[in-house]
């Protein structure tokens, strides 16, 4: 599945109109799906840090994260038509793809991908400046704040399940708690986060 060949990038497409970097995310995704070199390059350029960041957060290994990030872009190319703008931004869709791939890779590599404290750290406030973050905007800020307001044990449970892909039994083992408690923490945390997103208008429902 992974792409192994490399090739020099030659974009000899000459365009009229605005620079491709000014196009919206959906147009770039459409260009990726159509195999357009310019738009493909712009898409990768726009989301490389996002995709690599998600993969690195789950895997904790730069080399493995790079492999998974590349696979994620390939997956996005092959399944660009499955994107639904009513559900999420392109960045969120792509992050979810990356997360799934990274979790699969992490399972092959080791039972528990990264330390819980490390995972909790990845939901801390992020650096400023990208368009993707601007789009995610207020809802993301609300969700991040909501995570910090959760009881720590709930935040750990939902992050372990949501980012590391641990099952309830694995969360229970990692936290040294009964499985029923782990399930309750996961459910309570995600439900509460959903409610906050809906209140902020970011849930899309």
């Amino acid at each position: 599945m992974s792409l192994t060949a490399t090739a020099a990038v030659t974009c000899d497409v000459r365009r009229t109109g605005p620079p491709v970097d000014q196009l919206n995310d959906e147009a770039l995704l459409a260009g990726l799906g159509a195999g357009d070199p310019d738009l493909t390059a712009a898409f990768v350029r726009r989301f490389a840090s996002k995709v690599y960041g998600v993969a690195l957060a789950v895997l904790g290994d730069p080399a493995a994260a790079e492999d998974v990030a590349q696979m994620a872009f390939e997956r996005a190319w092959r399944h660009s038509s499955s994107y639904d703008p009513r559900r999420a931004t392109v960045g969120t869709w792509l992050a979810a793809i990356t997360r799934n791939l990274a979790i699969d890779a992490a399972r092959v590599r080791r039972p528990c991908p990264v330390d819980p404290e490390t995972l909790l750290g990845v939901v801390a406030p992020t650096r400023e400046g990208t368009e993707a973050r601007a789009v995610a905007g207020e809802a993301a800020a609300d969700l991040r704040a909501a995570l910090r307001r959760l009881p720590p044990e709930q935040a750990r449970a939902v992050v372990l399940a949501g980012l590391a892909g641990l099952s309830a039994s694995q969360v229970a083992a990692a936290e040294g708690i009964p499985i029923g408690t782990a399930k309750t923490r996961i459910r309570s945390a995600l439900t509460r986060l959903r409610r906050i997103l809906a209140d902020s208008g970011g849930d899309g429902d």
């Binding site: 792409l3 192994t4 060949a5 490399t6 090739a7 020099a8 990038v9 990726l32 070199p37 493909t40 390059a41 990768v44 350029r45 490389a48 840090s49 996002k50 690599y52 960041g53 998600v54 690195l56 957060a57 730069p62 790079e66 990030a69 590349q70 872009f73 390939e74 190319w77 559900r87 999420a88 931004t89 960045g91 969120t92 869709w93 992050a95 979810a96 997360r99 990845v122 939901v123 801390a124 992020t126 650096r127 990208t130 993707a132 973050r133 995610a136 809802a139 993301a140 969700l143 991040r144 995570l147 939902v158 992050v159 949501g162 980012l163 995600l190 986060l193 997103l197 970011g202 849930d203």
Partner: peptide, 24 residues
């Protein structure tokens, strides 16, 4: 999904974007 999207961005290694585009 929104939870995953909160993951901080990290600049990939040099040459990553070119390699990905080339492979695609």
């Amino acid at each position: 999904d929104a939870l995953v999207a909160l993951t901080p961005e990290v600049d990939p290694p040099d040459g990553f974007e070119e390699r990905v585009v080339g492979c695609l």
